[in-house]
Design a protein around this nucleic acid. Structure first.
Lengths: 136, 136
DNA sequence: AGCATTTTAGTACTTTAGTATGAGTCCCAA
DNA sequence: TTGGGACTCATACTAAAGTACTAAAATGCT
């Protein structure tokens, strides 16, 4: 927000500056208006590219961002979420249990709960749904 | 490629046109140079944004683009690849069989081959590896 | 046509995954 | 302090998934 204000402020300054330069150049009797226009064109061309790049970058990030509100609204607990992430990495229940220092039974319980909460029939489907919901 | 050439052609034309307009305006005695410069600035500002958007889109796509060469280098056949995509959608072997009009046995054979070729132990892991390799 | 590869499919097993249910522990807010 | 939620774990099943092997069509290429 602050950066946007600064950027636009600098832009307006640059615009005013260019107008002044063009005026003085004309007063001094030079007829190199083409050069002035070319400079203006190039400068604003670059500014356009720069601003666009910044705005696009800000729009790109939220696409991969995790929707923590959605996780909460789906009633997915911390442990369940941890397990979900491990499932998405392709680990088996046994491997997840070893990684989180839990028994396979516990993982199975968590997985079952995750499947219900995500309305999935299989762990593979759960991963797909979770990615669609931007949960992982 | 063709579109790029056309775009740049139009750009050069626009540039020349603006120069001509500026010349004639000056010859006719008008002192509205500020307006001309402003128009040029705005036009090139917009052009900058437009071109940047196009070039960024072309750079974004390859990030999600499928690496067909990798698929070939891994010796994954057409059918196997089809099955792999269905796995990533979270379907069971039975469901994939119904969708592709094949028996569950056949799907199992394909899945086994996919797991070997992707060096995965489970279908969930296969999906994760395939996504990392930009195969799906 | 003949050969290699792909695709299909089956049987017979082993291994994971997933369901259902019950029960103990821990922690936190009422 | 007590009831509820989250977490843990177990047993006993059922259902998928995955392996190993075999083998017949279908396809593609020279």
């Amino acid at each position: 927000m602050k950066k946007t204000v600064i950027t636009f402020g600098l832009l307006i300054l640059a615009l005013l500056l260019l107008f002044q330069i063009s005026k003085y150049t004309l007063i001094s009797g030079n007829r190199n208006i083409e050069i002035i226009i070319a400079v203006v064109a190039i400068v604003f061309f670059i500014i356009g590219i720069y601003l666009n790049k910044r705005s696009l970058h800000k729009k790109e990030l939220p696409q991969n961002a995790i929707d923590h509100k959605k996780i909460a609204s789906l009633d997915i607990s911390k442990r369940e979420y941890q397990v979900l992430k491990e499932i998405s990495l392709g680990l088996s229940n046994k491997e997840i249990g070893d990684k989180l220092f839990l028994s396979e039974s516990t993982i199975k319980t968590h997985v079952s709960n995750i499947l219900v909460k995500l309305d999935a029939k299989r762990r593979t489907q759960a991963v797909q749904i979770a990615k669609k919901l931007r949960i992982i």
